[in-house]
Design a protein around this nucleic acid. Structure first.
Lengths: 229, 229
DNA sequence: ATGGCCTATATTGTCGACAATATTTAAAGG
DNA sequence: CCTTTAAATATTGTCGACAATATAGGCCAT
């Protein structure tokens, strides 16, 4: 009867989402062991659902699991960031190119609407943009590729890791407005059905983003080593 | 004591591998439902390990799982093939480029040794080549990229799907020798540390492979529709 | 005191049973 | 005869307990 799709939420889904949010936010710190018994009592569910959630986290590369030993939260590293963004640049660049040819006119209209809404937020100086808006933009473009394996890899594996770096490094700097401008350029290229340009712009946009994060990562690494001394 | 790394094999690992082999080989046909109870009795293990194996198959895109309903073996389609190879071309092309700069001299020597061994097999006309040798070659190059997210996505998600198409369509035609020649060219480019060329050659190699499979897929689709009539 | 071994403890892997949800079957009404 | 509804069945989701493996701590020998 209901015209809306009602997603079935299982217990594991909730635990998985909750744990993922904690890990991405750095609430559960890198290298920490995820004890099944402990989490079981904490969340008030059986170990079975905890296990399933942890397995899903492992498939998202947010935790590393070893048989008979357990699962630990992944540790962010400079090398990891570089490798991650190398792949992300290739995949999202491709997504932008495909989106330029595969998105329907309606989808493109929706994208424009999203940009207008983001525009308001940027003017208002809200931090919301970097948190969800940016993800939302990229998410839309990825979906616009209409390529299922590509969508799956980006949304299930890469995005949450990317978010983890950004959130934990507290990315909310002056790049907000310039990133918005870059987004607009990409939307324009897609609107013009210029896949080649869309890919170039997207790759460059992601490269800038990487450089931005890299700088911050180096700074925080420097202070950390000082603290150790 | 043993100098070799001994991988820990859990029950789920065995079931996962067994099921995957059956699915890839087409022993379990597309669209068939994977009943937990049934598989539990068939393999003589508890439903828990079956569930875990099925979850892992779902993460490999070999089965589709819906909450409270169950898991079904994915159905191969022309569109699926095109999308899969689109992504594969980008990722493995990138892997070849990275391998050209990141592989150690020792790794490259090993790669040459592999090619010599394949050369023998091709001359002997063995079918082994297409089954494992080809995979082995691509596998080595992917590992040579030294990019962990890339390695993970290709080996865990894409390869088995690709193998599924090839195995089920009975790919063992005259392309064997020409594919071998293409492999050698790629190895040469990597040896010369020419990443750009390695990427171009790899992408083209995969494109040829796709065209080959596509042709066969169309033929079998044609006969299938006739059978229906 | 230190290093290696062995027991004790804790943690993960596996199992069978129960609960919640979907599917099938049958009955009733039109 | 077909559609709709409701009970019956089957399947997946969740749970707590036991088995197998890893970790920690103490004991012994040197």
């Amino acid at each position: 009867m209901s015209p809306f799709f009602e997603p079935v939420i299982t217990s594991s889904d909730k635990i998985f989402t909750a744990l993922r949010a904690d890990i991405v936010a750095g609430h559960v710190k890198a290298g920490v062991k995820l004890s099944e018994a402990e989490l079981s009592t904490k969340y008030g569910v059986s170990r079975a659902v905890i296990r399933e959630a942890i397995n899903r986290l492992a498939n998202t590369s947010l935790v590393e699991r070893k048989p008979n030993i357990g699962a630990r939260v992944v540790t962010l590293s400079h090398e990891g960031l570089v490798q991650l963004y190398q792949v992300r640049e290739a995949l999202e660049g491709m997504a932008a190119r495909l989106a330029a040819t595969n998105m329907s006119d309606a989808e493109i209209q929706d994208l424009h609407a999203l940009m207008r809404s983001h525009s308001q937020e940027v003017k208002g100086g809200e931090t919301y943009y970097q948190e969800a808006g940016d993800v939302d933009f990229h998410y839309r473009v990825v979906l616009g590729s209409h390529n299922q394996p590509l969508i799956s890899m980006l949304t299930n594996n890469i995005y949450h890791l990317v978010r983890m770096y950004r959130v934990q490094l507290g990315m909310a700097g002056p790049r907000v407005t310039t990133a918005f401008a870059e987004h607009q350029q990409i939307v324009q290229a897609i609107t013009n059905r210029d896949g080649e340009l869309a890919e170039i712009l997207m790759r460059r946009h992601i490269l800038y983003s990487k450089n931005n994060i890299e700088a911050k990562l180096n700074r925080s690494a420097a202070t950390n080593t000082e603290e150790i001394k």
